[in-house]
């Protein structure tokens, strides 16, 4: 757990950065469309709060749906691939190959197939978030120590028992921590999709505001998005420590 002193020093550092930024912008007369001062960004957030929140909610919904799909699918696929060596050997190389495809480049195709609505955004979020969750989860499931495996076999464990009683519990903390990576990936995915093919969401707002040289609005979007992703990540950490307390034994 982060101590109060550490939190305090982080806040202090952040404040110092903000003040330096503000002073620098004013001192060097930097035009607002190049780099808006923090005060201008905060003003913009206050002025456009309804509009921003509406679009933010839209982006978050797409990200959340994409992340949920990615988490469910990764977990299910990990179990299947951990259980069957032959299926894993057949499918895993294909998955890795797919991971090499730049998913952002798929957005125009997704838009072509599914239109400008929620679907291409959710799918992009899913496609980007899926692999970072699958890899650590599956690896944790298939790397049971030889000795432990021998012990289980000596006690008469079947393959499915090893999977249910050891592999899956063992992978739980890896799965949960990969959700952090999945969360940020999903947000990146939906924002990209919104920039390419959407008429709403934070990605769309960033794109349209920069094209009008409304840089404070773009920064407001970035700030809000970072804040909300950070908060969600913290929530995930709490869940992690509750569900897989044993994995954090050094810090209890």
């Amino acid at each position: 757990m982060v101590s109060k002193a550490k939190t305090f020093s982080s806040v202090l550092t952040l404040l110092a950065i903000g003040v330096t930024w503000e002073v620098a912008v004013r001192l060097f007369n930097i035009p607002q469309f190049v780099l808006p001062a923090p005060s201008a960004i905060v003003n913009t957030i206050a002025r456009y709060s309804n509009y921003l929140l509406y679009n933010l909610a839209d982006t978050l919904l797409a990200s959340a749906l994409g992340l949920f799909m990615a988490a469910t699918f990764s977990l299910a696929l990990s179990v299947v691939l951990a259980y069957s060596d032959s299926v894993r050997e057949a499918i895993y190389p294909i998955l890795s190959g797919f991971n090499a495809v730049p998913r952002a480049a798929l957005v125009p195709l997704l838009a072509l197939w599914f239109g400008l609505g929620m679907v291409p955004r959710v799918l992009t979020a899913f496609l980007i978030a899926f692999f970072p969750i699958l890899v650590p989860t599956l690896t944790a499931m298939i790397t049971i120590e030889r000795e432990l495996w021998e012990m289980l076999v000596a006690f008469g464990a079947s393959k499915s028992q090893v999977l249910v009683k050891v592999a899956i519990p063992r992978a739980t903390p890896y799965f949960l921590s990969s959700l952090h990576m999945g969360l940020t990936s999903a947000v990146v995915g939906s924002v990209i999709a919104e920039m390419v093919a959407s008429d709403r969401g934070i990605g769309y707002v960033i794109l349209s505001s920069t094209s009008r040289l409304d840089t404070p609005l773009a920064f407001a979007c970035l700030l809000l998005l970072a804040l909300i992703t950070f908060t969600l990540s913290k929530v995930l950490s709490l869940v992690e420590r509750r569900v897989a307390r044993w994995a954090y034994r050094a810090n209890i």
Partner: peptide, 13 residues
């Protein structure tokens, strides 16, 4: 069969 190894091999969860 009951088996005991060099390391305890307990399940931490």
């Amino acid at each position: 069969i009951g088996m005991l190894f060099q390391s305890p091999l307990l399940l931490p969860w």
